[in-house]
Design a protein around this nucleic acid. Structure first.
Lengths: 219, 219
DNA sequence: AATTTTTATTAGATTCATCTAAATACTATA
DNA sequence: TATAGTATTTAGATGAATCTAATAAAAATT
């Protein structure tokens, strides 16, 4: 059984190593954890003894298979809770992390399972990040801008490029947000503008500039 | 800011003192916390320094005003989460406490407020215990068995006496649970059985044995 | 290649929450 | 009221997570 703190270190190592791809150095981890490098050294040693990380002195650290699984479980909880906070409790994006970082450490498989069910087994969190499944599998869906998908494609909005306030306001106004289902129904050759149906209800036309900044995941 | 453990001690002292009425001795608290009496002495000293409890050596301990407020806040969170678990996630009564005891320590006024709203500002938890308000006020509603209320009375089921599986199953079958609104429409003098209307929909007859074990709060 | 700079680790303390064992205060009984 | 028994507290340790200061290793620079 890992402590809250150990779980947080593991999650940070997972993120900084980009899912285990490259090893993480002590100072980067110290900065991420807002703690002293010496504390990081201590903790890494402990996690290493628990076989949660692969570690050699002065060589950086990375998650082990076991540690990666654990990290993905915490990330799963984090993202599922975020969905709950946004969809059920109307949280704003900037209020999410503080609370989700507490909720992600609740230890109850039953709670997680029921919550997942209650939310309709979401695949993406409100930021468009994929939710790992119970086995730690990250179905890393391709995210494509609308401009690169053929007419007829249907998918879920999983993210946006750029985040100017005016762009987000526009999306909000036309009723597009993370999780919205879009179908591409037509594309005008002369200017690249696209007709999309939003959640199967209304169809609107978006400019190419907008289309290339909305990321869809086919599903 | 109190730690999880400190919050749990405070809650235990609040409960064992019956809301601050009588002082709590070390051994009782040690048993409640499943810890050694010596550890309790240590912790009480710490809580005393933080002015959360009133304490004199060898004289037992009790919550201070500050501590009582804090305890009631934790209890509020505990009970609101329980409502969520039962009403939204279909938890069974016996699965509740383990999870609620984790959730009660989440620190986020916004979360609590939104959750309370999401649940429709419940006044009682699924065990029929009252939920303290934001100011720590416990609207201690009288709980009366149906047998002691006059015909015509309407109220909410806030608890049951005893908890034999067969009794609970019976209640479930006829559609009575915590929160159900009942109106007493008739009482048979010869055997004490009672006709009650359930949620304004259907009327059934319950035996006196059943009636004396269902607790109503007039409202 | 030698030296400086950066990065990482160890050493030694501190705080929290716990423990066991020993000492002390209170309570009840003979 | 002295004593036996129980309840409570102190003393001294331990493990987790942290800190600062000092040391050691690696990397970069001259």
């Amino acid at each position: 059984m890992l402590s809250f703190v150990e779980e947080n270190y593991l999650k940070a190592i997972y993120h900084l190593s980009e899912g285990g791809k490259r090893s993480v150095n002590t100072n980067a981890l110290a900065e991420e954890m807002k703690t002293a490098p010496a504390s990081v050294s201590d903790m890494i040693k402990r996690l290493s003894e628990k076989k949660m990380v692969d570690y050699q002195k002065y060589r950086g650290v990375n998650v082990s298979e076991k540690g990666k699984f654990k990290a993905l479980h915490v990330i799963r909880q984090h993202r599922i809770w975020k969905v709950f906070l946004v969809e059920k409790l109307n949280f704003q994006w900037d209020q999410l992390d503080e609370v989700a970082e507490q909720l992600e450490h609740i230890k109850s498989p039953l709670l997680l399972q029921r919550l997942d069910e209650f939310l309709g087994f979401p695949k993406f969190d409100p930021h468009g990040d994929p939710i790992p499944d119970e086995n730690g599998q990250l179905i890393e869906k391709r995210k494509d801008p609308i401009t690169q998908l053929p007419v007829g494609t249907s998918g879920i909005v999983v993210g946006v490029n750029g985040s100017s306030a005016s762009f987000l306001k526009y999306l909000d106004k036309v009723g597009i947000s993370i999780g919205t289902r879009l179908q591409i129904v037509d594309r005008m050759e002369f200017d690249g503008s696209v007709d999309v149906t939003i959640d199967g209800k209304k169809t609107i036309t978006i400019s190419m500039a907008v289309a290339e900044n909305i990321l869809l995941s086919e599903a």
